[in-house]
Nucleic acid binder design. Structure first.
Lengths: 339, 339
DNA sequence: ATGAAAGCGCTAACAT
DNA sequence: ATGTTAGCGCTTTCAT
């Protein structure tokens, strides 16, 4: 069953294509009677409308391209969810792409997305290679970089400083009296933001003439299972550790389960700290410290930035709102007095 | 900076639009020298290509529309991930939409997706209302319904029987000697598949003249925190319960944490059972029973069905592979001898 | 191996 | 309030 076209609807309603178009889009100056006939015709034909033609003709797609590194880590779907929510009712629609933490794939996906002529594009992080940045710049649309602030944005920027997050957590753990701190992480070559947190954390330690008493790193992607395994290893080798900083909450939750199996009491014997503030962390049988990143809010903020930019574009007005939106993730799960 | 067009690339290379088009798409009959000149021109202009025009002209988008109910439950991003993986390298590209478990929203999103003229569409479940089904049918493209098998498919179907899953779990729990079984669930009016599992579970109980000794239901979406809260309530009221079936693993994991806080030993005192087989379930400090649904594999199977259908479409050949792909989720986390 | 003409389905801009 | 003309940027088809 071939899809019916506007022309067919118009013919059935006995009007011109143009009138049919106006009627269906709810233009004001169409006779009520005409509108009804057109709508009935469209209904009868199950008319759907061809947005390729619409967008090509009108020169705007109302598409927002979004590129994230992964769908496996809950964090990114949550951001996407926020973006979708923020875009709801604006006529804009998000389209998602996954880069698999791969710069080359990311470039190809961005190119691909740009070929659909989106009205704006949201990408993860600030660490795109030069040629990707060049491509983004020459697209001539608002570019929003989300989730990270540590770097030089192309255009708009929404996120949090992972350097600050790592630093703050180190300060908080030291303030809680922890001295023998270890690190457990994974895929740091791919997850650059986790690397920034770790580096900042280490800088704080170094300032106190301290360093990680042990490190467990793995190439695989972060997961509860991996965090559990690496932690079990580490605890077996270095039982004197009194604190572990993890690349994120998944790993830290796994660490908690490893401690429980080893009969090590959290947090009195050992404090565990992650990053993200996954919902999970509020329900665990023992507290783990974490930085609560507002994923959904970041997504919504990015969406808002775009809708605002579109409005400003229309009015061709001068100033276009703030270019950077800063979030500060609070630390939870860490109480004083655990010395 | 306005986006450059094929015409501009062609002009810069000193050839016609058509030759430039062929050169960029790697058509065989273009002089090597010409091809080089065109590619250089494209490079110089950061030419990206307009897929709206391409698709409008060529009458195919190579887009696969995918509609899922949510991004908050990890399960769906995993399916999307599988679809993306399965589509990689085929020239097809997935586009995602979220229905928020709302039939009306779902219809509008499907309509919207169809307006982009996708080459195929994947939707979640078999329970779309009539008018949505009608719309899908009249789209004239392959329709793949995923994640559920209990119902009448429109076209292709990939998934598992939630009825069977609920039944099998009931049988297994009874075989493990559990008698006082309770149910904890949420959003059953929206998550129809969880409802199917529960109903089938109850049928098994009824056949043994049993029924749930207690039920805790909630309107909110499933989460670890909610599972924990509802379980704590239930255990306080009915300490004699020796088994709880949950609407899914998130809820069950929360249930486990509630038991741990209450000092109730899992699984000896109480067996907890969920659904999905989240990665989490392999690492928890006590086992919870679950049906491992192969989310990623289901996504990949759906993708494969589509790529096969496209090939068959080309050859215009008769038979088009199996229309239904059945997955059987194994039960894990449940050992005999817990009587 | 290259080019010219026509058209994909729609809307913008200008009539009337 | 309705219609006409032109064209969005590309590919298809047919020439050469």
């Amino acid at each position: 069953m071939r899809r019916s076209t506007l022309e067919e609807v118009a013919a059935l309603a006995g009007v011109s294509k143009m009138t049919a178009s106006r009627a269906l889009r709810g233009s004001s100056d169409v006779a009520e009677e005409t509108r009804r006939r057109v709508q009935q015709a469209a209904e009868r034909l199950s008319y759907v409308g061809n947005r390729l033609a619409l967008s090509l003709s009108s020169q705007r797609t109302n598409l927002v391209a979004v590129v994230v590194p992964s769908m496996s880590n809950t964090v990114f779907p949550e951001v996407l969810s926020g973006i979708t929510t923020g875009l709801a009712g604006t006529g804009m629609q998000a389209v998602f792409g996954i880069s698999d933490y791969d710069e080359v794939k990311e470039r190809e996906i961005i190119r691909d997305m740009l070929s659909w002529q989106p009205s704006a594009i949201i990408v993860t992080g600030l660490d795109q290679p030069h040629d990707t940045v060049r491509m983004l710049k020459s697209a001539g649309i608002p570019v929003i970089q989300v989730m990270d602030l540590d770097g030089t944005p192309i255009d708009f920027n929404v996120g949090l400083s992972h350097g600050d997050a790592g630093r703050d957590m180190a300060v908080a753990l030291l303030a809680a009296g922890r001295k023998k701190i270890a690190y457990v992480g994974s895929a740091l070559d791919k997850d650059l933001r986790a690397g920034k947190r770790k580096a900042a954390f280490q800088r704080v330690l170094a300032a106190q003439s301290l360093s990680f008493v042990s490190e467990q790193l793995d190439d695989g992607f972060s997961s509860i299972a991996l965090g559990k395994r690496l932690t079990a290893h580490m605890l077996a080798a270095k039982p004197e550790i009194d604190c572990i900083y993890y690349s994120n909450d998944d790993m830290a939750a796994g660490g908690l389960f490893a401690c429980m199996e080893a009969g090590i009491i959290v947090p009195s014997q050992i404090v565990l700290a992650g990053f993200n503030g996954l919902d999970l962390t509020d329900s665990l049988p023992a507290p783990i410290a974490t930085s609560k990143s507002p994923r959904r809010a970041m997504g919504e903020a990015a969406a808002r930035l775009i809708t605002d930019a579109m409005k400003d574009g229309e009015k061709s007005s001068g100033e276009a709102g703030p270019k950077t939106i800063v979030f500060k993730p609070p630390i939870t799960g860490l109480k004083q007095g655990w010395t």
